[in-house]
């Protein structure tokens, strides 16, 4: 048991806490910490680093009977085939445009919501909006897409009922390629804006209140106070989250895209990860789709490094 009194009376002669001690002793004395790490490290090697090694199948002609090691090398043949295939540009454009569309609206809206919540003076109303807007975050993607099917149904869906009441034609939204991206992005905002605002709201509450007081005395309106106190106050948070978003630019919401996909909207809903799923997992073209997957991962990683480098140069906030 830990005895506080005894601890206090002991002068800190215990040398294990001092950094200059020889390395071996420092390691040995902490063997239990390494013991704790043992299983997690094995897990990381097995489930994170072995698949990274497994990427080599993108450069091989993988066959299940020969295994990854035994399969013959194929060089860049899979990449060449992928880059020159007829659907490559469509896939790439669908992926990039969907991601940018999502970033353009999905990123700022939680910030705006947090600023709005921060300005609501009625405590109960603030709490109500917060709690209601968090709920959709906890619905599963299956339920979300199920709800989209229900609300956008050409006959019984509420949206089309309203359109028809207004004398317009009903639209089969889920079966229209041109509506796919809009539905994808707006339903994502509906689901996650409340949850996404939490972090900014927390950052806002950390701003020194005297700054607002000073701005008020200087005659700043509330809008000006938002612009000159609130937004600069949460800027570091915004930048960090932006970098993280960029790092995942290419794999945003693949599971949802897969559920929303149907043969009719495929010309817009086919993105790189759904392509990998359909042709790899379903179609068994492992090497070919591993090449496509690697292409996707490399773009993500490059973007992350670039944006982080840029943020570090221009601002003080960066991931590393």
């Amino acid at each position: 048991m830990m005895q506080a009194e005894a601890a206090k009376s002991t002068t800190s002669t215990n040398s294990e806490w001092k950094p200059k001690h020889v390395l071996r002793k420092r390691i040995l004395v902490r063997y239990e910490l390494y013991l704790m790490l043992f299983i997690p490290i094995i897990w990381y090697i097995l489930f994170k680093y072995v698949p990274m090694y497994g990427i080599t199948i993108a450069f091989k002609d993988f066959s299940a009977t020969k295994g990854i090691l035994g399969s013959p090398w194929a060089g860049l043949a899979h990449f060449e085939r992928f880059f020159s295939s007829v659907y490559f540009w469509e896939l790439l454009w669908n992926t990039i445009s969907l991601s940018l569309f999502q970033l353009l609206f999905g990123f700022p809206i939680p910030i705006l919501l947090a600023l709005l919540l921060n300005e609501i003076r009625l405590r109960w109303l603030q709490k109500l909006l917060q709690n209601v807007s968090y709920i959709p975050h906890f619905l599963s993607i299956i339920v979300l897409v199920g709800m989209l099917n229900i609300f956008l149904d050409p006959e019984t869906g509420k949206i089309n009922q309203i359109l028809m009441m207004l004398g317009m034609d009903s639209v089969n939204f889920m079966q229209k390629a041109e509506w796919f991206q809009t539905i994808f992005v707006s339903s994502g905002i509906w689901q996650h804006m409340g949850w996404g605002s939490i972090i900014y709201l927390a950052a806002l509450s950390g701003i020194d209140p005297t700054l607002y007081e000073a701005a008020k005395i200087d005659g700043a309106t509330r809008l000006q106070r938002i612009k000159h106190v609130s937004i600069p106050g949460i800027m570091p948070t915004i930048i960090i989250l932006f970098i993280l978003q960029i790092g995942q630019l290419m794999d945003v919401g693949f599971e949802k895209a897969l559920l929303m996909q149907n043969p009719i909207n495929a010309s817009k809903s086919d993105i790189l990860p759904t392509f990998v799923y359909k042709n790899g997992i379903m179609g068994g073209q492992f090497s070919y789709t591993a090449a496509a997957g690697l292409f996707n991962a490399v773009i993500d990683f490059t973007l992350l490094v670039l944006v982080n480098w840029f943020a570090k140069k221009k601002t003080d906030s960066s991931l590393w």
Partner: peptide
């Protein structure tokens, strides 16, 4: 920030 991806996993 970097993963083996769907197929190798």
């Amino acid at each position: 920030f970097f993963s083996g991806g769907l197929i190798p996993t």
